[in-house]
Design a protein around this nucleic acid. Structure first.
Lengths: 95, 95
DNA sequence: ATAAAATAGTTTATAAAATAAACCAAATTG
DNA sequence: CAATTTGGTTTATTTTATAAACTATTTTAT
């Protein structure tokens, strides 16, 4: 039997990192994700959009005072996708 | 603290699949890897070269009768890289 | 015997992805 | 008040993955 496919949307270091972080918090701000994933703002912005387009996360744009504030949450769909990805990965890395 | 980087050479479905397979066998033929990873010959050929260039695997080209026979083995260096990759991944997927 | 198809690949071209660079608007600091 | 920082987005560039085209030999069918 052949190896299972890995969800290409999750098989990206940055997007996986974001999803991983969102798994363990209620919600996270752009700047938090940027720091934790060690990414540039541009790259993060692009990848968040992709996750959002896929319905894996929701993005809420508000203001803190007059500065923009971007807040992300994982969705139920995203959670399921993450779990399936982890499951498929285990075929590759054992255990 | 920020998330660890994932070895980009291993963070590719096909290359990871190859390495995963090579972890559990003494050596593997091109056609075996092709079937197990569900890849095209072209893509597999390219990715094997990359793994070989990095010193993660060795590729031996011989003949079975008059047909070409390509045999791959994981190297000590590749084994270590694989283990480190799996380790880093755990930061992302938990456990 | 020979044309057609299959095997075992490689090389090159194309599509998709990741990343970086340039930019914008407001706020803060010197 | 000019320069820098913050919090981003958009666009351009580079890198990567994938697919398509090709080579050489072999096997199968006619």
């Amino acid at each position: 039997m052949a190896l299972k496919d890995l969800d290409p949307l999750l098989h990206s270091q940055l997007r996986l990192g974001v999803m991983s972080l969102l798994m363990s918090v209620e919600s996270a701000e752009f700047t938090f994700l940027k720091e934790k994933t060690n990414s540039t703002a541009g790259n993060l912005s692009v990848q968040l959009d992709k996750l959002s387009e896929a319905g894996y996360i929701t993005i809420e744009k508000t203001f803190k005072g007059k500065k923009p504030l971007t807040t992300c949450k994982i969705t139920k769909h995203g959670l399921k996708a993450f779990e399936e990805y982890v499951n498929a990965l285990k075929q590759y890395i054992g255990k």
